[in-house]
C-alpha cells in the first residue's frame, strides 16, 4: 500500500512541480514584491512592511476603478448571457445554414482583442468614424462616443459584448445540445407552448451550465484592459479606468512595481471573495430553486 502511494506521488510530482513553478511561484513572488518599495529609483526587494497596503487604502482612484469595473463587468456579462442564450436557442433549432451561422458567431471571439479595439476606435471616432456617419444620416446630432463619460462606458461595454457573446453562445449551445429530450417532449405532450416550455423546462435545466458560463465570463470581464487601453486610455478623465488598467499604469508606466504588486494582490483577493459570493448566490437562486 505504502509502495503504491509512493508510485502515485512519483507520477504526480512532475505535474505538481510545473504547477508550483507556473502558479505558486509568481503568486508568492508578487506577494513578496508587494512588501517592497521597488520602483524606478530603488530596484530590488527591500522590506517596507505594509506601506504599500496602507497607501492603497487611501487611494481613491483604485477603489473608484474597482467599482467602475464592477459596473462594466456585470453589465457586459448580463447582456452577453441574454444575447448568447438567445442566439444559442436560435441555432439549437434546425435552421438553414446552421453550421455557417455557428462559425460566423464565433468570429469575434477568434480575433485579437487589441486589433479589434483599434477597429472599434475607428468606428467610434467622432469625426471620421462610421458610427457618427450613421447617426447623422438619420438626422441626429453626432454622439460624443469617447469624450462623454457615459457614452465611453457604453462603448467599452459594447465592445466587450461584441467580442465575448460568442463565448457565451458556445457554452450555452453545448449545454442545450446535451439536454435530454424527454422532458421537452413531455412538456409538449402536456400542451406547454414554447415560452412556457422554456421557462419551466429548458431554463431550469440549463441552470448549472449558466452559472458556470456567467462565472467564467465574470472572471474574464473583470480583467477588461485592451479595450480601455486602446479606445479610451481610461478617459475622459478617469471615467473608464478599470482596475487592471490602473494597475498597468502604476506598474508598467510609472514603474512602481512594489505598489502595483500590492494593488494586484488586493484586487485578486477582492475578486476571489466577490466571485465566490456571486457564484454561491447564483447557485442558490438558479440551481437550488430548480431543485
Amino acid at each position: 500500500m505504502y509502495g503504491l502511494t509512493r508510485y502515485k506521488l512519483f507520477f504526480l510530482l512532475p505535474g505538481l512541480l510545473v504547477l508550483l513553478a507556473i502558479i505558486l511561484f509568481p503568486l508568492i513572488f508578487t506577494i513578496r514584491v508587494s512588501f517592497s518599495g521597488w520602483d524606478a529609483v530603488r530596484p530590488g526587494l527591500d522590506w517596507i512592511g505594509g506601506v504599500n497596503y496602507g497607501r492603497l487604502l487611501a487611494d481613491g482612484r483604485f477603489w473608484q476603478s474597482l467599482s467602475r469595473l464592477g459596473l462594466m463587468a456585470v453589465s457586459a456579462v448580463a447582456i452577453e448571457y441574454v444575447l448568447g442564450f438567445g442566439l444559442a436557442l436560435l441555432v439549437w433549432r434546425q435552421i438553414r445554414f446552421r453550421r455557417l451561422v455557428r462559425v460566423l458567431f464565433l468570429i469575434p471571439m477568434m480575433t485579437t482583442p487589441v486589433v479589434m479595439a483599434v477597429i472599434w476606435r475607428t468606428v467610434f471616432h467622432e469625426s471620421l468614424g462610421p458610427a457618427n456617419d450613421l447617426v447623422t444620416l438619420f438626422g441626429f446630432a453626432p454622439i460624443p462616443w469617447l469624450t462623454n463619460a457615459q457614452w465611453a462606458t457604453f462603448v467599452v461595454i459594447l465592445v466587450d459584448v461584441w467580442q465575448w457573446t460568442p463565448f457565451m453562445f458556445l457554452l450555452l449551445l453545448a449545454g442545450l445540445l446535451s439536454l435530454p429530450r424527454e422532458p421537452l417532449l413531455a412538456a409538449a405532450i402536456d400542451g406547454a407552448g414554447p415560452i412556457r416550455a422554456f421557462w419551466n423546462v429548458t431554463f431550469p435545466a440549463m441552470a448549472p451550465i449558466s452559472v458556470g458560463a456567467i462565472i467564467i465570463r465574470l472572471i474574464e470581464a473583470s480583467k477588461i484592459m485592451e479595450t480601455v487601453y486602446v479606445i479610451t486610455s481610461g478617459g475622459p478623465g478617469t471615467s473608464t479606468e478599470t482596475s487592471s488598467y490602473y494597475i498597468f499604469i502604476r506598474g508598467l508606466r510609472d514603474f512602481q512595481i512594489g505598489y502595483a504588486a500590492a494593488l494586484s494582490i488586493t484586487y485578486l483577493v477582492i475578486m476571489i471573495v466577490l466571485l465566490t459570493i456571486i457564484a454561491k448566490l447564483l447557485t442558490k437562486t438558479l440551481i437550488k430553486a430548480e431543485a
Binding site: H125, E126, S127, G129, N132, P142, P144, W145, L146, T147, T232, S233, G235, P236
Partner: peptide, 9 residues
C-alpha cells in the same frame, strides 16, 4: 474642438 477632439492622440 472637433467632435472627439477631447480624445485625440
Amino acid at each position: 474642438w472637433a467632435p472627439g477632439g477631447a480624445n485625440w492622440g
